[in-house]
């Protein structure tokens, strides 16, 4: 890879620039630029540092989970249980601390371990028992949510010490603390996908799983990792969420899986597998949040905003399909 000739590299570069513009990411950037221009005219409060940072704070949880979800969807899988793992971990954090008198630090760690184990349970069945991911996670969607209700007895845990709110409600180096989590995780996820054998393996699995197996890619290990990773990230997101809202509820994160999937799909990851990027997902995530926020600031109500988001989701894929057909052939 590194010892290729210079002209070759340049044409690769040109190709990749061309690809970037013609890919879903390009479409997204164009939509986003249009949206930002229009929204900044309709609301003077939209394009301000405070507002944008605040919006970034609100989208962190979905963003964190969208990273492993990108991997999963690239392999042609899906994880519907992330919202329930999110709720389950949040509840366990509060329950271990309040009811079981764990030190808060230990409760945070334990809740992340529990989220990770929940992901592992999905992973084991998906990889070794070969249950289709959508079915396995549909079942655990109900199961984990039920565990959250059952263990907490629907009680919420509140009254956390002050330092705990550092993560969700305060700033670190001038930026809301949780955004640092998202930045670090995104860089990690991006490098992993774009620059390592693991990343290439993920694409290979999505394109042709059997082929990937024959070409010596450790498919099982990779698949195992991505579902565990999803559990882990859901738990981390749950911890940040708990710190942001200062309480744990058994119903938190309900329906979150759809927000996550929408961001990933909008970001150009093909639901049938084989293609997608981390930066695409982040663009999708940001676009969704900007639309929600900008429309609201411009006086559009929540119900109409939902409609617009639905239309944008369909349209962006439509435009992308059109471009692929028109220019790629």
């Amino acid at each position: 890879m590194t010892t290729q000739e210079a002209p070759q590299e340049r044409s690769n570069l040109q190709l990749s620039i061309r690809n970037a513009f013609l890919g879903q990411e390009g479409v997204l950037v164009v939509i986003m630029v249009i949206a930002v221009i229009v929204l900044s005219f309709t609301s003077e409060n939209f394009l301000t540092v405070d507002n944008l940072l605040n919006q970034a704070r609100l989208m962190t949880e979905v963003g964190l989970i969208a990273l492993p979800m990108t991997y999963i969807i690239i392999t042609g899988g899906i994880d519907l249980s992330v919202g329930s793992i999110f709720g389950f971990s949040a509840v366990m954090l509060g329950w271990l601390w309040k009811e079981q008198s764990f030190p808060l630090e230990a409760a945070i760690l334990a809740s992340i371990v529990i989220g990770t184990l929940s992901g592992l349970l999905n992973a084991l069945f998906i990889v070794y028992v070969r249950v289709p991911p959508i079915i396995m996670t549909l079942a655990t969607l109900a199961l984990y949510r039920g565990m959250a209700y059952g263990i907490s007895q629907a009680r919420s845990a509140r009254g956390y010490p002050d330092w705990f709110f550092q993560f969700g409600q305060r700033d670190f180096l001038g930026i809301p603390t949780q955004i640092w989590f998202l930045i670090v995780a995104s860089i990690f996820a991006w490098i992993l996908l774009a620059r390592t054998p693991f990343g290439r393996g993920i694409y290979a699995i999505g394109n042709n799983e059997i082929g990937a197996r024959f070409s010596g890619i450790p498919v099982n290990r990779y698949l195992l990792f991505i579902y565990v990773f999803a559990g882990f990230m859901s738990a981390v997101a749950a911890f940040l969420f708990t710190s942001r809202v200062s309480t744990t509820r058994a119903d938190s994160g309900t329906g979150m899986e759809l927000d996550v999937i929408a961001a990933v799909v909008l970001g150009g990851t093909s639901i049938v597998g084989g293609s997608g990027t981390i930066h695409g997902t982040l663009l999708g995530l940001v676009l969704l949040q900007l639309l929600k926020n900008g429309l609201s600031l411009s006086g559009v109500k929540g119900d109409a905003t939902i409609v617009v988001i639905g239309v944008v989701l369909i349209l962006s894929i439509l435009i992308n399909n059109y471009i692929q057909k028109r220019f790629r052939q």
Binding site: S270, V307, I317, N321
Partner: peptide, 14 residues
């Protein structure tokens, strides 16, 4: 050629 899960996710919102 919009994948069904995306098309219906969008329709659900609408």
């Amino acid at each position: 050629r919009i994948p069904a899960i995306v098309a219906t996710l969008g329709m659900m919102s609408v």
